[in-house]
Design a protein around this nucleic acid. Structure first.
Lengths: 151, 151
DNA sequence: GTACCTGCAAAGCGTTTGCTAATTC
DNA sequence: GAATTAGCAAACGCTTTGCAGGTAC
């Protein structure tokens, strides 16, 4: 996701109108590395825009995705997550608290000899484990901050 | 997934009962590398067991998963997929026809210096591109065999 | 003024659950 | 005979859609 100013320009250039709701969603996403779900965004933005509807959130996210300004991310647990970071990267998913972190480590593209005739466009890597907080907390057995859905 | 005989033994050993429905689901999964959804399994097995219900399919799959006999796989597109292949491997997902293939190529585990304090348990890699059939068919522009859900 | 957009509600899809009757052991 | 399991249906969570009125341009 670009900085707000440039993003607004880009959207206008793409023919879309700048409503307060969209601007608020843009602002919420900007620099947000928590990989929020549509529901997360909805709840947060609604605090300042009480009339906001979830459908608008989905619409806006879909548009931003088509513009290539946000990534969509499915780490299981039901809801899709949205990621303003569009540079190529991977994700670390904590299986205890459900938190998702960006991972910018370089990953060599796999040996493709195993896939004769296929054309590989992209590689998505998901690391699963315990995040810093949770692996530290393991000893004291405190409950998770945001438990991941059971499946 | 183990061969049928051993699997039945294993399940009995784990205290579960061997109903015809379960046996049929086992047989359908055995050696099935198409990564079927619960619905796929349901439709196929119901042909021989007309009374079968979708809930039973989910129950059986959940049990098999807990026994470590099938993997669960979420490549987007809505439905979860089930994979009788439990050896460590990765997946290639065709973005045109939605087909999912197993990839046994060795993939180097990413450099974990970028995640200080985290404990990484497993790595899931998903390759996205065009499968053999679809990249061959690209020229002739035939419709996809099983279009992937739009998101 | 016009096209796009919002909000609402309802539908859609995949999945889970509660209950009763049937079955496996 | 006892406890697990199947089937059914209804509920659930996330997402999409149809249509009204409202709003940015």
């Amino acid at each position: 996701l670009q900085p707000l100013e440039q993003l607004v320009e880009r959207c206008r250039g793409a023919g879309m109108r700048m409503t307060p709701q969209r601007r608020a969603i843009f602002r919420y996403l900007s620099g947000n590395s928590a990989h929020p779900t549509a529901e997360d965004i909805f709840r947060a933005v609604r605090r300042r825009h009480p009339g906001l509807s979830l459908a608008t959130v989905y619409n806006t996210l879909e548009t931003l995705h088509q513009l290539g300004e946000v990534g969509r991310l499915d780490v299981g647990g039901g809801a899709e997550r949205f990621d303003p970071e569009v540079r190529p990267h991977h994700h670390f998913n904590c299986r205890r608290c459900g938190k998702v972190q960006d991972v910018f480590a370089e990953l060599p593209v796999p040996h493709l000899g195993a896939l004769p005739g296929c054309r590989v466009d992209s590689v998505q890597v998901q690391l699963i484990g315990l995040c810093q907080d949770c692996s530290r907390r393991s000893a004291s057995k405190k409950p998770p901050e945001r438990p991941r859905a059971p499946a």
